[in-house]
Nucleic acid binder design. Structure first.
Length: 968
RNA sequence: GGGCCUGUAGCUCAGCUCGGUUAGAGCGCUUCCCUGAUAAGGAAGAGGUCGAUGGUUCAAGUCCAUCCAGGCCCA
């Protein structure tokens, strides 16, 4: 009966991981890891809900790995870390997926299909994709409670969101306003700024210069001429109500033949070119008040020139066409001037009856050429050309967006901007520059949050309006039932059921029938509400209060960098709006995973790596280890399937080999860690004390780096330890494990205990990073022994033993390894194989320095020499000195270069005296410099008759070898 | 157009906070060694205008400025 299970030297990690997953399931380890910490201080983690739309890609594994490593670490250091999964269910992406499925295009089609049927499909789609995400989550070993996940489409969640919206409405922070927003005529909805930003493309649009004939002016000499107006959206000309000028810029009236035009002086050359005479120059303010004949007659009382501060002198003519329906600035000016909003375009983006007859029914962009033709025919066109610029398109359906005055609901986040900035100061960002860089800038430029969406699959805006215009915000189904006079407890709060609920307007003395306003809300609001809504938090219903208060704000969140404008913002905004607090204290902000050419992974490029390909081939540990330790987590990282092979070979197999080596010989020698007590550390051989000291340093650094949210540095330190363990400790100790048959000797016992202890500690160190292989090692080496729990994930994270740290030994061993490396090189260079024993190796170091004496056996064994001698310095070669720039630079300034030349010319006499510890005066230029030994770095040149390896700064130590009598 | 990040060997990346004169690692490639961890291990070699230019400095991969390229975010 063996103490340890035999270990297959050939390991298939995906199969191993399947076994571990089964163990975790059967032994219920995740739940027990929480129970173990019941009553411990909580460390709060929030899961940013993935949008359950589309299959998960490898870029979903990255945040999920970081969301796993820190909670696991914190659990192992004695915290209770509850982990509630979540799914983002609503939103346009889900709708578009269904539109594709059922072959609809646009809102009319959806309504014909039926909102009830459409939303049912959306719900099914979400559930289907959540299944894929759950499978991935489990497979990568991301421990999170999937059974208790919050779904943003659940009734409790929606009611919680309603509660928050009702409060905003009561506080006057949720308002309806006419604003110009980017609007997709195909999807039939306004887009958020973030969505708009997704779809900029460089396109060619017409650039037209149009005459606006002047009919009346404060300066009568202008009458008879025309304003020269520039636009790249001819289709907006039918909505023109005014022209803006820069009041302080000089404008000119120019003439050629019978034509007189007015434009900015600085734009003349580029727009009209040669052949025009300047008749007069006047400031923009002198043109203000001028009336003109609009390109298309529409309303009375407008069509004037006004002053504005946004008129550019970089392009155009300095005379800006204003169409309040189609531009934010235009609308602002129009309001100020009292102009009506001319809106000749319908929600579908086509001209209505209010447009000129020849474009009615045409999509606006298709109307451009017709309008240009019409202007030309009517003699209004001065010039038309193609103009290349970037223009936003719908990020989902590629329809050109229109800027469009529409009624929308807004959360007045500009009112809390200062508080957001304050609260941001309390947050630790990793990397730090995001705080005042990308994220801070975003907060500085805060605009009100356009919350409503004229769509179907989303949290319905809970506002009911009666014919008298009274708006009532409703906070729950119970409240809605009371207002409607019937029990609505079982109602699905989604459209269309909710649309059918009519209430009696509760306004004083009104009582008219009120119906819900049609919009749903931005899905980003849903996810930003998760700190409270995940618990169905609802003070009025007495629900989720304790859970929320216990877990707000979060200690830790982590997502990719694109969330600065997404979840990082909505989470914080809602934290401040509802609770006047940040929603999180530490954020790990990750870079993107890109393909081998540095391109973003996207379905359309076909460069997406399916995470299951990696998981089936190299396994979850390899994938996780790559994400955690390779490159910098905050910069984008290139991946290909091959990079994971390297992880397996370089790290996982190295560790596995050590593990398999240990188990093989432990079984062969009958080693049982419990049967024989470990020898006291001070009685173990120096190599054991060295690796044990390194282990303590590794433990200390891993803990420190993980506390600082730097899993990358922690992981790299562990990897270096494993390399030391494999390629130096085991390499040098191998023979100590060979005791076939007999009882292990005391030396073998020390080796077995040391290696066993290292492997058990490494398993615990690695548990948060590579939970599968860590568990495998633990299960075989530690579980059930010495009171260890049956899973590494129920263990405490290792603590360093400061008493075992021996810095001098570490330095000496590093020196020994360098000496050995040099010795091996000498053997190669002199072509004397290592299997050929030699009489001596001579090391050019003072004997006994840095504790080397204790380690000479290692050198001798490794190099296969009978003795290691330390050199009689004078006997070998001569000394050379180089300036120690760090010391001499500040003292000598430019003369340091002359000194360097002097030392280069030295025949060894100066350097020799310095090496002997003397202070030497060296002539440099016109003066002398006193050099102390510490002012130079000394190296050796070695004479003939020696095989020699040399290592330069900062550690001298030329290492010559005697080759005069090679045969021993 | 603006903000932030990135640019170091064929590939993936350290080093840049705090400047020090021969810029490192792993992988890949070539040659060789080892053969009781062997789908391992060791040594050597080739391979770099540290994105470009200018500046500060005795000294710049590192600091400053400008520019170029890529990414993300915002217009």
């Amino acid at each position: 009966m063996s103490t340890f299970e035999r270990v297959e030297p050939r390991v298939r990690f995906p199969e191993l991981e399947a076994r571990i997953l089964a163990f975790w399931r059967e032994a219920d380890v995740f739940r027990r890891s929480l129970e173990l910490r019941a009553g411990a201080p909580e460390w709060v983690f929030y899961e940013g809900p993935p949008t359950a739309n589309g299959k998960p890609g490898i870029h979903h594994v990255e945040p999920r790995t970081f969301k796993d490593v820190y909670p696991r670490f914190k659990t192992m250091t004695g915290h209770l870390v509850r982990r509630k999964a979540g799914w983002d269910c609503h939103g346009l992406p889900v709708e578009l997926e269904i539109e594709k499925e059922i072959g609809t295009s646009g809102k009319r089609d959806i309504e014909a299909f039926g909102i009830a049927a459409f939303n049912a499909r959306c719900r099914e789609s979400v559930q289907r994709y959540v299944g894929d995400f759950e499978r991935l989550t489990e497979r990568i070993g991301f421990w999170i409670d999937l059974s208790e996940a919050y779904w943003t489409m659940s009734t409790d969640y929606i009611e919680s969101v309603w509660w928050s919206l009702k409060r905003l409405h009561q506080r006057g922070l949720l308002v309806e306003a006419d604003k110009v927003t980017a609007y997709c005529p195909r999807c039939g909805t306004a887009l958020s700024d973030a969505e708009v930003a997704l779809g900029y493309r460089v396109v060619e649009d017409p650039s037209v210069y149009v005459r606006f004939p002047i009919v009346e002016s404060p300066d009568p000499s202008l009458v008879g001429g025309s304003l020269l107006v520039w636009t790249t959206t001819p289709w907006t000309l039918p909505a023109n109500t005014g022209v803006a000028v820069a009041p302080d810029e000089p404008y000119v009236q120019v003439r050629r033949a019978h034509e007189a035009l007015v434009l900015a002086r600085s734009r003349l050359q580029q727009t009209l070119g040669e052949g025009w005479t300047i008749e007069r120059t006047l400031p923009g303010s002198a043109i203000v008040g001028t009336r003109y004949e609009p390109p298309y007659a529409n309303v009375e009382g407008a069509h004037r020139v006004v002053a504005a501060d946004f008129v550019s002198m970089e392009e155009g003519t300095g005379l800006v066409h204003l169409a309040p329906a189609f531009g934010a600035l235009d609308l602002e000016v129009g309001r100020r001037e009292g102009w009506p909003v001319v809106k000749p375009v319908g929600d579908d983006g086509a001209f209505t009856e209010e447009g000129p007859p020849f474009v009615r029914g045409l999509f606006v962009k298709d109307a451009d050429p017709k309008i240009v033709d019409d202007l030309r025919k009517r003699g209004r066109l001065v010039r038309a050309e193609a103009y290349e610029h970037s223009y936003p398109f719908c990020w989902r359906c590629a329809t050109p967006l229109l800027y469009y005055a529409r009624t929308s609901w807004y959360v007045l986040t500009t009112r809390i901007k200062d508080r957001l900035l304050e609260v941001n100061e309390e947050v630790n960002w990793y990397p730090e520059h995001i705080k005042h860089g990308r994220y801070g800038n975003w907060l500085e430029n805060n605009v009100d949050w356009a919350l409503s969406r004229d769509r179907y699959w989303g949290t319905p805006l809970p506002i009911w309006r009666c014919p008298a215009g009274h708006d009532t915000a409703v906070g729950s189904l119970r409240e809605l039932g009371e207002l409607a006079g019937r029990d609505l407890g079982d109602l699905d709060p989604h459209r269309p059921a909710i649309d059918e609920v009519r209430i009696r307007c509760p306004f004083e003395g009104c009582g008219a029938e009120a119906s819900r306003l049609p919009p749903v809300i931005d899905a980003w609001y849903d996810s930003g509400a998760m700190p409270f809504a995940q618990w169905g938090y609802h003070p009025e219903l007495g629900r989720g209060i304790e859970e929320f208060e216990r877990s707000f704000p979060a200690d830790f969140i982590s997502e990719a960098i694109d969330q600065t404008r997404g979840w990082f913002y909505t989470l914080m905004a809602e934290g401040v709006l509802h609770f006047d607090s940040t929603a999180y204290r530490n954020v790990v902000c990750l870079g993107h995973i890109v393909d081998r050419d540095g391109r973003k992974m996207s379905k359309s490029l076909g460069n997406v790596i399916d995470p299951f390909d990696v998981l089936d081939r190299q396994g979850a540990d390899a994938l996780r280890w790559f994400l955690l330790t390779s490159g910098s987590p905050w910069s984008s990282r290139r991946v290909s399937l091959e990079v994971f092979d390297e992880i397996v070979r370089r790290f996982l197999l190295t560790l596995w080999n050590v593990y398999a080596f240990f188990v093989t010989y432990a079984i062969a020698d009958g080693f049982d860690p419990e049967a024989t007590p470990p020898p006291p550390l001070e009685e173990r051989p120096v190599l054991d004390r060295w690796i044990w000291s390194e282990l303590q340093l590794t433990v200390a650094e891993a803990r420190e780096r993980l506390e600082a949210y730097d899993a990358t540095a922690a992981g790299r330190r562990i990897e270096r330890f494993v390399d030391d363990l494999s390629n130096w400790y085991v390499r040098r100790s191998r023979r100590r494990f060979w005791n076939p048959g007999g009882e292990p000797s005391p030396d073998a016992l020390a080796a077995f205990h040391t290696l066993h202890g290292c492997l058990v500690t490494v398993a615990a160190l690695l548990a948060p990073f590579t939970p599968f292989i860590a568990e495998e090692l633990w299960r075989n080496l530690a579980a059930g022994r010495s009171g260890h729990p049956d899973s590494v994930h129920l263990a405490d994270y290792p603590e360093p033993d400061p008493a075992a740290i021996d810095p001098a030994l570490g330095t000496a061993m590093a020196e020994v390894r360098r000496i050995v490396e040099l010795g091996r090189r000498v053997r190669v260079e002199t072509r004397i194989r290592t299997r050929q024993p030699l009489r001596a190796a001579v090391v050019d170091r003072p004997a006994g320095s840095a504790g080397l004496a204790a380690l000479v056996d290692l050198i001798a064994e490794e190099l296969n020499v009978k003795a290691v001698r330390f050199a009689d310095r004078a006997s070998i070669g001569r000394w050379r000195a180089k300036p120690n720039y760090r010391a001499l630079g500040p003292r000598l300034g430019a003369r340091v270069q002359a000194l360097a030349r002097a030392l280069a010319d030295d025949d060894g006499s100066i350097a020799g005296r310095l090496a002997a510890g003397e202070t030497v005066a060296v002539t440099v230029g016109d003066g002398a410099v006193e050099l102390a030994p510490s002012d130079v770095e000394l190296t050796r040149e070695v004479g003939v008759g020696w095989g020699c390896g040399e290592r330069g700064r900062p550690r001298r130590g030329a290492r010559p070898r005697d080759r005069r009598d090679p045969r021993a």
